[in-house]
Nucleic acid binder design. Structure first.
Lengths: 207, 207
DNA sequence: GGCGATCCTTGATCTCGATCAACCGTCAGA
DNA sequence: TCTGACGGTTGATCGAGATCAAGGATCGCC
């Protein structure tokens, strides 16, 4: 049995609607996940119940790997924010597969490096960019990962997007409004990007 | 030759004084580092030159692993902020060692998981805690990792600490002042923690 | 000792985004 | 058709922390 088969063999495919909670902070980290369809939000809560989104994972992305190598507890909460289909794999099985074939370890190292890089981007844009610049950057990313289409679709509710960007829903709404002048139009979940280069410039300079 | 020897064999020990730049954003990621003495700051710069500290690494900690598995470019800058002695290892040699012994891959996975966890903590405390709470949390961590001594020593300049916590030096200074009431005294780099439990409580509740 | 550099603190003011509150459009169910 | 829930927008106000500005302490060096 080759590596790919060994992995697939251990995967369990599941479906879950919006608002399904996959795990909570402190739960023992029994599996890691690969998203097939829909979106899943990873977040933390403050003592007062405020929510800080740590990650938003869509088709093709995986999460939960790190918890398997640490305390065996998830340090975050996971919730489906857009009806999802995903694959789950038992941590135990995963560790077995890795031991059987170290190539898997390299794949894992690659994916965790990517997560690290994304968190670094996240942290630095939180600290170095204005709210509007962060929104602009988010739209640019959406645009680039959708074949540079002029109209992109927000992956989930605006309130979740806001939380991803470290903003309140109100602030996100205002940010969208303020970008009308540079060719950004928002109707429900459809965002029209009139001038991608202008937007890109704006994300960098804030002007 | 066993694993440990194989790794040590490839390490190069170096020393560098404060203000030495180890690498810049965009440099090709040729090595990863293990700190022996002193402190090294990992940070990003905005277009206007503002600095966002991403990490602060001291004795026993390593950094730069992730870059080896990604674009081969450092996504951040690295600077010595407290006279340092550290070990360097060529990425090429590292990859070789991993291939020779997969146990190393597990060690790397563990260390990268830890980095991920730290970044998650960082990001969520930025968003969920007030500036004073973040400072309190920082002091608690110092206290705990120094055998719970009543007096802890700040690892480097206050301006760097401030940047680590996402604050201006002024804000850090004011945060210290405001914690006098709960038994925290700061004289140069010595921080006296009169009532650790009180401080811990404060870090959580902000009161 | 005198001088400047570095690091830190303190005060005054300003600004961005949070918060509070009202309102609108859409949709589902009675 | 009415009604309430939900998601979103907009307006008014507030406040934490940034920014600007000045001054103080400590140090090394001539």
């Amino acid at each position: 049995m080759n590596v790919r088969e060994a992995v697939f063999d251990q995967l369990v495919i599941e479906e879950a609607p919006k608002k399904t909670f996959l795990f909570s902070e402190g739960d023992s980290a029994t599996c890691f996940y690969i998203v097939i369809r829909g979106w899943i939000s990873i977040y933390r809560l403050s003592v007062e119940g405020k929510r800080a989104n740590i990650g938003l994972f869509g088709p093709g992305e995986s999460f939960g790997e790190a918890a398997m190598f640490l305390s065996m507890r998830y340090p975050v909460n996971g919730e489906v924010v857009e009806n999802a289909r995903f694959a789950r794999m038992e941590a135990r099985a995963m560790r077995q597969v890795i031991e059987d074939d170290p190539a898997i370890a390299f794949a894992l190292l690659g994916s965790m490096s990517k997560h690290l890089k994304i968190l670094v981007d996240h942290l630095s844009s939180d600290r170095l960019l204005s709210s509007v610049q962060r929104v602009a950057r988010f739209l640019i990313n959406l645009h680039d990962s959708n074949g540079k289409a002029d109209v992109v679709r927000l992956p989930c509710e605006k309130a979740v997007i806001a939380s991803v960007l470290g903003l309140t829903p109100e602030a996100l709404s205002r940010a969208f409004s303020s970008m009308r002048g540079i060719g950004v139009g928002v109707v429900r979940r459809e965002v029209t990007i009139g001038d991608p280069d202008r937007l890109r410039e704006f994300a960098l300079s804030g002007k």
